[in-house]
Design a protein around this nucleic acid. Structure first.
Lengths: 399, 399
DNA sequence: CGTCTATGTCCAACTAGTGAACTCTAAGCT
DNA sequence: AGCTTAGAGTTCACTAGTTGGACATAGACG
């Protein structure tokens, strides 16, 4: 079963090559596969047959007005992936297939005080509902991506302390959900998944190095380096919220003073407006008011943008990404916040680092995290689960 | 000649696997190669024979007190790499072989006012001298690594403006030196090469993610992510010197205020001591005095350490490396500067990012950059240069 | 001094990819 | 309409290359 070195690993590699080529292009004829993968037509013929027998791929008899080309595409039910995202106030679930198509997506409000068990129950129910609605085959599910709004130890899978979902601390979300659904579950935090979502489906397409800044209750960043999420050896990379901007600034929940968070995160910014705009203000509300022209809200948002810009400038000096994508509720403010960010970056980052940088709003809004979870499930599957399945399915059962 | 897809590319891959394993370990027996690469003993036997026939590898008949193991190592003259480092005041050259052995190393003072042409002449001469001294075969040279103390556009190979070597701006060092030596030359800046040097030979061995902080005339960082130098899409990653620590701090040469550099780099720190300690003070001198107990110098160094620590804390929050290595003249101060750095990191970095971090002085001193250049040449060579040569040499000349 | 054991080599079996020949189909030309 | 053409996909014989197992080798251990 394990050919770590070689021999048939070549075949495996070629299978993956073909699958990847098909996935990227959507559908290809065999000749096109041969050209893009560099394999010979004969080999492609064999591989396609193998994949077709395994049910992993669909061959539509004839397509366009060529001579006689059979177009090959990933069969819709070859593999199903599920994304689950626990957000601040919402639970979101999405179902997709290997062709990067999102089949269904739904969200429902989540009570912050709900216990972890209740949360997972709800998630399980919502997943089941969507499975039923889309009519996909449960056995085709190859993986689940799960997003949690807090620090998670990727090694052990344990959730660290999160002020957003109190009482969930110490739980192991992947195990919990995996147990209920009976499928491997891969977890990551919301910022990393947002980054992945925007990378695959949103404002980050075509870029290999990007930083996704999520401003919500706190401030976090998901870093994509060389096309992959970078978590750092300890799993806590991307904590841009606790970069120090002002050593004598406000005290932050982390114990330091003047962290970026204290100038930008909802929990520190909203109180500024409470005396003038009432106490039940949300970030969303501030953004709406600002768009409608409220000067106080505009000012606050611009200030937040400037501070984020300072943090992003530091990030650019250190990492020099080619794109920064702003996510979270704040992104809805558009130029009201992006302008000040760009201005601040332009001022504080060294010119050569800032020159090629583009700062964009996220294209997916609140969906970034679920879709990222979907992408995580896809990437963790690594195209090879598919193939393992194919081999297992294609091989008649020996004794 | 081109098997882009497959077939014998497998063999090639296995050859590379073996070469890499041997290179990393220095020397291995065939059985060990088989275990570490996952290949079967038979395959290893064939590959070793092939490499031996090609002269790429040496098999020392029997080594330790086992049963009968023949240790395989890259033959000393299979390939020679050269490292060249233009420093602030010195030109350094090292010659090494594929077995990671440094055969010779020499440095000589370099006049800062020297023109680029003069500098390259000197480098060429020094390289020739070392080649002669070690008696290596010039045709065996597979690559040269070159370090320059300034920002370099890796794409175009053009040197940006550097205050250290005025008049070199706009030159293309790789082309210059490559033309003189007739070998491919790979350039990078001093901080990145220092990181590579410490990674391969120094305080960074065994770690996959590290930041090398070089404090000299300026402050720069070389970042190693997943075992490879990370330059960023624009090639300017690691500019830790221009992180903003204090928005209303001293004006920096980059145009901003309160950059880390203004609190830590020689050009800003030395003037502080000039009224009390004379004007021709160097960083080296300050370190020496501090070690001898001079309170003023100790204070200055501790302050520098604290500020570097702030910058490193930001870096840890963002990247969470497992090790930070301090290089440059300042590293000689040992605990006098490392203590304050650690203290500052502990205070400003979020605990989970700082917990597993170790802050160490560089183990190579001023040699880090040349050795890094050597490592760059080795890594850029990419194991396949060697093999191409082998194939060409092993194949009898057909018509 | 015989046995043991791990190393390295040889050989037959097998896997998998390739080029070349071949078939198939629709488009284009006459 | 019939013929030609040309690209698509398949089949087949061949070859490259890895593997498991048998075999030889030589120090270590008792």
């Amino acid at each position: 079963m394990e050919t770590p070195g070689s021999q048939s690993s070549l075949h495996r590699a070629n299978l993956e090559r073909v699958v990847r080529a098909v996935r990227l292009a959507g559908s290809l004829t065999q000749a096109e596969i041969a050209r893009t993968t560099g394999l010979s037509a004969a080999t492609v013929s064999n591989i396609v047959r193998e994949l077709k027998d395994g049910g992993k791929v669909e061959v539509t008899p004839t397509s366009a007005g060529g001579r006689r080309a059979r177009s090959v595409s990933l069969s819709g039910d070859a593999g199903i992936v599920i994304g689950v995202d626990f957000g601040h106030t919402h639970l979101r679930v999405a179902i997709g297939n290997l062709a990067h198509q999102v089949l269904a997506e739904e969200s429902e409000p989540l009570d912050v005080d709900a216990s972890a068990a209740q949360g997972f129950d709800r998630a399980e129910q919502l997943v089941s509902r969507l499975i039923a609605a889309t009519g996909v085959d449960r056995t085709k599910i190859t993986g689940v991506g799960l997003g949690v709004p807090g620090p998670i130890d990727v090694e052990s899978g344990t959730l660290g302390s999160t002020a957003i979902l109190p009482g969930w601390t110490g739980t192991k979300p992947a195990e919990e959900l995996g147990g209920r659904l009976g499928v491997p579950v891969h977890v990551d935090n919301d910022a990393n998944l947002g980054a992945l979502g925007e990378l695959v489906w949103g404002s980050g397409r075509g870029v290999r190095d990007l930083a996704y800044i999520k401003v919500a209750s706190g401030v976090g960043a998901g870093l994509v380096i060389n096309g992959k999420i970078y978590r750092g050896p300890g799993g806590t990379a991307g904590e841009i919220g606790h970069i120090t901007l002002d050593e004598s600034g406000p005290v932050c929940r982390c114990g330091n003073r003047g962290c970026l968070e204290t100038f930008a995160a909802a929990r520190y910014v909203l109180p500024l407006l409470q005396s003038s705009h009432g106490t039940d203000l949300t970030m969303e509300g501030v953004v709406r008011l600002a768009r409608d022209g409220d000067p106080g809200c505009r000012r606050v948002i611009a200030d937040v943008g400037r501070h984020i810009g300072s943090g992003v400038a530091n990030l650019c000096n250190l990492l020099n990404p080619s794109r920064v994508v702003l996510g979270g509720d704040l992104a809805e403010a558009g130029e009201l916040v992006l302008g000040p960010i760009r201005e601040s970056v332009g001022r504080y980052a060294i010119p050569s680092a800032a020159r090629q940088l583009s700062v964009l709003p996220g294209a997916l809004g609140g969906r970034a995290e679920v879709l990222g979870a979907l992408a995580l499930a896809l990437s963790e599957m690594g195209d090879s689960t598919l193939l393992d399945g194919s081999l297992a399915a294609a091989t008649p059962a020996f004794t």
